[in-house]
Lab assay of single mutants.
Amino acid sequence: MGFKLLSKLLVYLTASIMAIASPLAFSVDSSGEYPTVSEIPVGEVRLYQIADGVWSHIATQSFDGAVYPSNGLIVRDGDELLLIDTAWGAKNTAALLAEIEKQIGLPVTRAVSTHFHDDRVGGVDVLRAAGVATYASPSTRRLAEVEGNEIPTHSLEGLSSSGDAVRFGPVELFYPGAAHSTDNLIVYVPSASVLYGGCAIYELSRTSAGNVADADLAEWPTSIERIQQHYPEAQFVIPGHGLPGGLDLLKHTTNVVKAHTNRSVVE
């Protein structure tokens, strides 16, 4: 069995187990497998329904001669939608809004960016022009300005110390501490036991640490421990890039980060 097929099978099995364990909360999309990078042309966006009122959005972007996937989250909030992270750029984010209108038909009224990198804030200006209120932590807003990236308009308070959590509509926002970046936030959907790890969490097929220019490698494993301790009931975990899975993604990420750190020390 090929690795790609095995990865998709694991996603399907995880979703099936969740649907059985929580039949009222989960209505997993039966329309197909989780979209992969090879299936999404740059400039297009796919939506994948995880649970009743919960979707991931998947886009792709060219970077350094390669094409990478990027995940975000959409959560229903009454007759409105909360968006977590842009679709990595203005063109993708405009396509995301169009796809949401086509498939869901509810307005996106608020959006949260989970850290300051372009795959999370690139497209904020498109959201703002569409009347979406954009939010991020003060740290993310400051770092985005320093980096020359787009800056969300509103500040999220109460997320300055490791372990801080605040309720934001249908989700809980959690600051686990520094990891992929010093400002990275985690998003949890309690009604569906869905954990969105953003770039602080890796997919299972990833074996290298990737972009760690703004990471705190020493603190990252401790931050992941905080996530595990705060959300032990999480059933569906979405990484910032690639295929979702279960809580095993947290341990896998820790292993990859520690291996990278150990290699760096040896070198």
Rank of each mutant, 00 (worst) to 15 (best):
1 M>S: 05
1 M>V: 06
1 M>T: 06
3 F>E: 07
4 K>I: 14
4 K>E: 08
5 L>R: 14
6 L>S: 14
7 S>Q: 10
7 S>T: 08
9 L>R: 15
11 V>T: 11
11 V>I: 14
12 Y>R: 09
12 Y>M: 14
12 Y>S: 10
14 T>A: 07
15 A>N: 13
15 A>Q: 09
16 S>E: 08
16 S>C: 15
16 S>K: 08
16 S>P: 12
17 I>K: 15
17 I>N: 08
17 I>A: 14
19 A>V: 15
21 A>V: 14
21 A>D: 15
22 S>A: 12
22 S>K: 12
22 S>I: 10
23 P>M: 09
25 A>F: 11
26 F>H: 11
26 F>V: 14
26 F>N: 10
26 F>A: 12
26 F>P: 10
28 V>A: 12
28 V>P: 10
28 V>I: 13
30 S>P: 11
30 S>M: 15
33 E>A: 09
34 Y>F: 15
34 Y>K: 11
35 P>D: 08
35 P>H: 08
39 E>W: 10
39 E>H: 11
40 I>L: 15
41 P>W: 07
41 P>Y: 08
43 G>L: 05
43 G>A: 06
44 E>C: 06
45 V>A: 07
45 V>R: 03
45 V>E: 03
46 R>H: 09
46 R>Q: 09
47 L>M: 13
47 L>W: 03
48 Y>A: 15
49 Q>C: 07
49 Q>S: 10
50 I>W: 07
50 I>R: 04
50 I>L: 08
51 A>Y: 08
51 A>M: 07
52 D>G: 11
52 D>I: 09
53 G>M: 08
54 V>N: 04
54 V>M: 05
55 W>V: 03
55 W>T: 04
55 W>Y: 07
56 S>G: 15
56 S>W: 15
57 H>G: 03
57 H>P: 02
58 I>G: 04
59 A>Q: 11
60 T>S: 13
60 T>W: 14
61 Q>T: 07
61 Q>C: 05
61 Q>E: 04
63 F>I: 07
63 F>V: 06
63 F>Y: 06
63 F>G: 04
63 F>P: 01
64 D>Q: 12
64 D>E: 08
65 G>F: 06
65 G>S: 10
66 A>T: 12
66 A>M: 15
68 Y>L: 06
68 Y>Q: 03
69 P>F: 09
69 P>G: 15
70 S>W: 01
72 G>K: 03
74 I>N: 05
75 V>G: 02
75 V>A: 06
77 D>C: 03
77 D>M: 02
78 G>K: 08
79 D>A: 09
79 D>M: 10
79 D>V: 09
79 D>T: 09
82 L>I: 11
82 L>F: 07
82 L>N: 05
83 L>I: 09
83 L>R: 00
84 I>Y: 00
84 I>E: 00
85 D>F: 00
85 D>W: 00
85 D>E: 01
86 T>Q: 00
87 A>M: 00
87 A>C: 00
89 G>N: 01
89 G>F: 02
90 A>K: 09
90 A>M: 09
92 N>H: 01
94 A>K: 13
95 A>Q: 13
96 L>N: 00
96 L>A: 00
96 L>W: 00
96 L>Y: 00
97 L>Q: 00
97 L>W: 01
97 L>H: 03
98 A>C: 09
98 A>L: 13
99 E>I: 12
99 E>N: 12
100 I>A: 06
101 E>K: 14
101 E>R: 13
102 K>L: 11
102 K>A: 12
103 Q>L: 14
103 Q>D: 14
103 Q>K: 14
104 I>W: 00
105 G>H: 15
105 G>M: 10
106 L>E: 06
108 V>H: 00
110 R>E: 08
112 V>H: 06
112 V>I: 12
112 V>P: 04
114 T>D: 00
114 T>N: 00
115 H>W: 00
116 F>P: 01
116 F>G: 02
117 H>C: 00
118 D>R: 08
119 D>F: 00
120 R>Y: 02
120 R>W: 01
120 R>D: 02
120 R>F: 01
120 R>N: 02
120 R>H: 06
120 R>P: 01
120 R>K: 03
121 V>T: 06
123 G>H: 04
124 V>P: 03
124 V>W: 04
124 V>D: 02
126 V>T: 09
126 V>W: 08
127 L>F: 06
127 L>N: 01
128 R>P: 06
129 A>D: 12
130 A>V: 11
131 G>R: 08
131 G>W: 06
131 G>A: 07
132 V>T: 07
133 A>S: 11
133 A>Y: 11
134 T>Q: 01
135 Y>G: 01
136 A>R: 04
137 S>G: 05
138 P>C: 05
140 T>H: 04
140 T>Y: 06
141 R>G: 03
143 L>M: 11
143 L>G: 05
144 A>G: 05
144 A>P: 06
144 A>F: 04
145 E>G: 13
146 V>R: 14
148 G>F: 06
149 N>C: 06
149 N>Q: 13
149 N>M: 15
150 E>M: 02
150 E>N: 06
152 P>G: 02
152 P>M: 02
152 P>I: 03
153 T>S: 11
154 H>A: 09
154 H>W: 13
155 S>E: 14
156 L>I: 09
156 L>V: 09
156 L>K: 06
157 E>G: 12
157 E>H: 11
157 E>D: 13
158 G>P: 05
158 G>R: 08
159 L>T: 03
160 S>Q: 13
160 S>G: 13
160 S>F: 09
161 S>D: 13
162 S>I: 09
162 S>F: 12
162 S>L: 10
162 S>E: 14
163 G>F: 06
163 G>L: 05
163 G>R: 05
164 D>N: 14
166 V>F: 07
167 R>H: 11
169 G>M: 04
169 G>H: 07
169 G>L: 05
170 P>K: 06
171 V>Y: 03
171 V>Q: 01
171 V>N: 04
172 E>G: 02
172 E>Y: 04
173 L>S: 01
174 F>I: 05
174 F>R: 02
176 P>C: 00
177 G>A: 03
177 G>I: 05
178 A>T: 07
179 A>K: 02
180 H>A: 00
180 H>R: 04
180 H>K: 00
183 D>I: 01
183 D>Y: 04
183 D>V: 02
183 D>Q: 01
184 N>Y: 03
185 L>A: 03
188 Y>M: 01
188 Y>G: 02
188 Y>R: 01
188 Y>F: 11
190 P>W: 06
190 P>T: 08
191 S>W: 14
191 S>L: 08
191 S>C: 05
193 S>P: 05
193 S>E: 13
194 V>Q: 01
194 V>P: 00
197 G>Q: 01
198 G>P: 00
198 G>S: 06
199 C>F: 02
200 A>W: 03
200 A>P: 00
200 A>I: 08
200 A>C: 04
200 A>Q: 02
200 A>D: 02
201 I>Q: 00
201 I>E: 02
201 I>F: 07
204 L>A: 14
205 S>I: 08
206 R>G: 14
206 R>A: 15
206 R>F: 15
206 R>M: 15
207 T>D: 15
208 S>T: 14
208 S>A: 10
209 A>P: 09
209 A>W: 06
209 A>L: 07
210 G>C: 06
212 V>C: 04
212 V>Q: 07
214 D>H: 10
214 D>C: 05
215 A>Q: 04
215 A>R: 03
215 A>I: 02
215 A>W: 03
216 D>V: 10
218 A>K: 14
219 E>H: 08
219 E>Q: 10
221 P>V: 11
222 T>N: 13
222 T>S: 13
224 I>L: 06
225 E>Q: 12
225 E>H: 09
225 E>G: 12
226 R>Q: 08
226 R>P: 05
226 R>L: 09
228 Q>F: 05
228 Q>T: 14
229 Q>E: 13
231 Y>L: 01
231 Y>E: 00
231 Y>F: 10
232 P>N: 09
232 P>L: 08
235 Q>W: 08
235 Q>F: 06
236 F>D: 07
238 I>H: 02
241 H>E: 01
242 G>W: 05
243 L>G: 11
244 P>L: 06
245 G>R: 04
245 G>I: 00
247 L>V: 14
247 L>R: 15
248 D>M: 09
249 L>N: 07
249 L>P: 01
251 K>L: 11
252 H>V: 03
252 H>C: 03
253 T>M: 04
253 T>K: 03
253 T>N: 04
254 T>E: 12
255 N>K: 11
255 N>I: 09
256 V>F: 06
258 K>M: 11
258 K>T: 13
259 A>L: 09
260 H>E: 14
260 H>W: 05
261 T>M: 13
261 T>D: 11
263 R>E: 15
264 S>C: 05
265 V>G: 12
265 V>E: 14
265 V>R: 11
266 V>T: 14
266 V>K: 12
267 E>I: 08
